[in-house]
């Protein structure tokens, strides 16, 4: 790691002030991506601003039509929450599949979506459920939040504060995990919401995306058979040592069908 200054922020204002006074500051949530990145010297911020001390950013609230999760809430807390399991069991299930227990004890929803790793799980849930991302500057729909590989609608110095998920009629997440890292080679999040059917795919492309053909077919008949013949073109999918684009295209169909079946 290159040397940097460390600051533990006590509040959002404190964090933003620290960011503004730094030459090239970076925020740290759980650090599960940032610290490995620093260790490999792939980043060299002058200041690391730790958000862990901002208690307002942590917590889960559930009301009659939505689940709201604070940005600094760790995956283990979402996975174990009886309220989340009851309201959106697919969301708790998704959180339980991220990384491993030690990573889930540190990694946060805010950190995950701000980083927007193409193979991360949470973007699937956000887009699949039509969630709303609340930041220090704006309120933005998940469809507009994830803009590209490791790119989001966040501007310089802007922080995610919480994410609100509308409670769906039914939803399920199925992923084909990389056996070593548990990142999604392909993950499919399918939900029947009051605004219609949503099918979100993570892991396969540069960033999470929806599959409108599947959504239309499922609106006609919410069965795995209804999407059996829908192929997603491999042209723009990721190809790497874990899977070719063609294999990922195939897995999209398999995972989406499993997710529909899992919705019951």
């Amino acid at each position: 790691m290159y040397a940097f200054d460390y600051k533990k922020a006590a509040s959002l204002e404190d964090a933003q002030q620290a960011f503004e006074s730094a030459d090239d500051g970076t925020f740290m949530a759980g650090g599960m991506t940032l610290i490995p990145t620093l260790k490999q010297r792939l980043a060299s911020p002058t200041d690391v601003i730790d958000l862990d001390g901002i208690d307002d950013l942590r917590g889960i609230t559930v009301d009659s039509d939505s689940v709201t999760i604070g940005a600094m809430t760790c995956h283990a807390d979402v996975a174990a929450s009886a309220d989340v399991k009851k309201a959106i069991s697919a969301l708790a299930h998704l959180a339980s599949l991220i990384g491993d227990p030690q990573v889930r004890n540190r990694g946060t929803i805010g950190g995950s979506i701000a980083n927007n790793d193409p193979a991360a799980d949470y973007p699937g849930a956000l887009v699949g459920l039509g969630a709303t991302v609340h930041t220090t500057k704006k309120t933005v729909s998940a469809d507009d939040f994830f803009t590209g590989m490791f790119e989001t609608a966040l501007e310089e110095g802007e922080l995610v504060t919480k994410v609100s998920f509308p409670i769906p009629e039914k939803a399920a997440y199925q992923k084909f995990p990389n056996p070593a890292s548990r990142y999604a080679v392909v993950g499919a999040f399918v939900a029947k919401t009051k605004d219609g059917i949503r099918v979100a795919i993570t892991g396969a492309g540069a960033t999470v995306f929806r599959v409108p053909e599947m959504e239309t077919a499922l609106t006609g008949s919410f069965t795995a058979d209804a999407i059996a013949d829908i192929a997603v073109p491999a042209d723009e999918l990721n190809s790497d040592l874990h899977a070719t684009a063609g294999y990922r295209a195939h897995l999209i169909g398999v995972m989406a069908k499993r997710a529909v079946a899992d919705c019951g």
Partner: peptide, 22 residues
């Protein structure tokens, strides 16, 4: 690289990897 878990400790009662914490 936060994969093998040989550095696992408990912080405030939760298991964490001490190689991936400052």
């Amino acid at each position: 690289t936060s994969q093998c878990g040989a550095c696992t400790i408990h912080m405030n009662g939760k298991s964490v990897k001490a190689c991936t914490l400052l």
